[in-house]
Design a protein around this nucleic acid. Structure first.
Lengths: 167, 167
DNA sequence: TTAACCATGTAAAGCGTTACATGATTTC
DNA sequence: GAAATCATGTAACGCTTTACATGGTTAA
């Protein structure tokens, strides 16, 4: 999947690995984020397979490797984009812990839920900030995903709050 | 995390790897599920580190390796259970695709959303079936997680439906 | 001048899936 | 007699993170 996300970013404009990472942090980070140790080798691989091309430039004394998507890269990306998605798993560590909550006492249950609610609040603020940075020019689908992210964490907050209140 | 989930299952009762897998399918599968290729080596590792003990029995001509949690295993599990959870990512492939929806036409957008809504409906049915199997004796927290799972997928369904209707 | 940011990359380790491999029992 | 289920495991592969490693520029 990650190769296709990189190709997706490069479909919008040519970028360096560093820029892809920064872009991700300000857009997809709440549903997809990764490290440089993943990005750079992926770009090399995509270059080797002909899905992107590279242009080297020296900007401010620093080597910049700008990657551009090729037509085969666009094909690969669109093929992925048109493929049906598998159902997503929740994979929420906090939920996994609730599954085993019978092994904790109420005091510890409360503490954990309260801690997690704080983190959910922080995450909602982060996403609202991302949304705030978006200008009118930004692709409506990118705005939509951030809005869905905000709604998702608000939903989670309500769920965990309800459990806390029932204790 | 997986080691701790195995320990969590073994805290309830001693089990074989096969039973752990079956138990997971009927309880945690929507937020955590894994393969035999993960379970068996994990049990070996936990045995080597003294967190579980093994008892071999032959039942119906088949070798059964029943694993029991030790006190050090319980300590490890509880330590994990009491640790604050990191915020969960959404990691939903369908959402990732919406992020790149500007590269598809409306017809294809609709098809994908409709396909995914079908999968969400199926998943809700699966979880309702799991919940239906639970008797009164089942730990209330295990019931609660399934209920949260159902609510989660219903919430997702509403979100995707809204996007579809706006098209 | 020092911290933050820009920019690139490698190596090792961790985590997990898929495919392969075996063989018994039970149910239709 | 065939298919499903019970039961165990290994090997190869793939994906991703973490830690390590380098070095320039810009802002406080």
């Amino acid at each position: 999947m990650f190769e296709n996300i990189v190709l997706g970013f490069l479909t919008d404009k040519s970028m360096t690995g560093y820029e892809i990472k920064k872009n991700m942090e300000n857009s997809t980070s709440f549903f997809y984020n990764t490290s440089f140790g993943n990005i750079y080798p992926t770009l090399k691989k995509l270059e080797a397979s002909g899905h992107v091309t590279r242009e080297d430039e020296i900007i401010n004394g620093k080597l910049n490797k700008s990657y551009t998507i090729t037509s085969s890269g666009k094909d690969k990306f669109l093929q992925w984009l048109e493929t049906e998605s598998e159902i997503g798993m929740i994979r929420d560590e906090a939920l996994t812990k609730i599954f085993f909550f019978s092994h904790l006492d109420n005091k510890k249950r409360k503490e954990e839920l309260q801690d997690y609610l704080l983190k959910l609040n922080k995450q909602i603020e982060v996403l609202k900030e991302i949304k705030g940075k978006y200008t009118d020019k930004v692709d409506k689908w990118k705005v939509k995903t951030v809005e869905m992210g905000i709604d998702y964490y608000i939903f989670m907050k309500k769920s965990y709050k309800k459990i806390l209140e029932e204790l």
